[in-house]
């Protein structure tokens, strides 16, 4: 008797579920989403570029966004659209230009160069960051794809950006805090160094891969600075207009 009751209950529940509408929607219409260019050190939602490491004659730079599509590839090129998100934008259309918005035939993604200007109206990029936020927009070819990849922020400036290795263990306390002048001095003598690539800092642990290498690097900076100051009338100045130093225990 009890068995029949159980069978009846299961049947009732099953009957109720069987009538529920399918909430997930599927469509034949392909969608698009936007990301940055990993080769430009883009993160998941943004990219930051500094003109400061470029020659002073450089006036523009192409920051890339990559438009991916879902669904099958097409035998024909398909246009897509991007729109500016005003909430995350402090530049005008005079300060940038967007490249061709077309997905080539047979491709499932397209790289779109966003040409940004070194000089931006109303902003001092030696002190401030210019920001342009783009969002994918539905058109006749594409729907808007995954929500988390609907928009992407492009940032640029004309001052030095603190590299990730500077703040990791040891370098700040042994060489000094990040300042524009201190980093510029390093760039002047070594070019665009990367202490991760040089094997000085371990990118995984964040500790010096070999402290002797780190100290050798810092000692060389001190000697180079001594040499600079000895051969110039004015010492190399820090951001606060005081003579620059490298070494441990520095607060600026």
């Amino acid at each position: 008797m009890k068995l029949w009751i159980y069978i009846l209950l299961i049947a009732c529940v099953g009957g109720l579920i069987a009538c529920e509408n399918e909430k997930n929607t599927f469509s034949d219409q392909p969608s698009i989403y936007i990301k940055g260019d990993p080769d430009q050190q883009a993160t998941a939602d943004s990219v930051l570029f500094s003109f400061k490491k470029s020659d002073k004659t450089v006036e523009t730079y192409d920051l890339n966004v990559v438009i991916y599509t879902t669904g099958v590839v097409s035998e024909y090129p398909r246009t897509f659209e991007l729109e500016v998100v005003s909430e995350g934008t402090n530049v005008t259309s005079d300060d940038y230009s967007i490249g061709k918005m077309e997905l080539p035939a047979g491709a499932y993604y397209a790289t779109v160069p966003i040409t940004v200007n070194r000089t931006v109206g109303g902003l001092d990029l030696t002190q401030e960051i210019a920001t342009l936020t783009l969002r994918v927009k539905a058109n006749e070819n594409f729907e808007v794809g995954a929500e988390e990849y609907m928009q992407f922020k492009l940032c640029w400036c004309d001052y030095l950006i603190q590299p990730a290795w500077w703040t990791l263990y040891g370098f700040t306390s042994d060489a000094g805090p990040f300042t524009q002048a201190r980093y510029q001095f390093i760039l002047d003598y070594y070019g665009d160094v990367d202490l991760f690539e040089m094997g000085i800092v371990d990118p995984i642990t964040g500790y010096a891969a070999d402290y002797n290498k780190q100290y050798a690097f810092i000692a060389e900076l001190i000697e180079l600075l001594n040499e600079y100051n000895a051969t110039h009338e004015e010492p190399y100045l820090n951001d606060n207009e005081e003579p620059l130093e490298f070494g441990s225990g520095l607060t600026y």
Partner: peptide
């Protein structure tokens, strides 16, 4: 130091 046997020079500030 103990990190390795690679020798590092010691520099004097100024």
């Amino acid at each position: 130091n103990y990190s390795s046997a690679l020798m590092t020079p010691l520099a004097m500030r100024n």
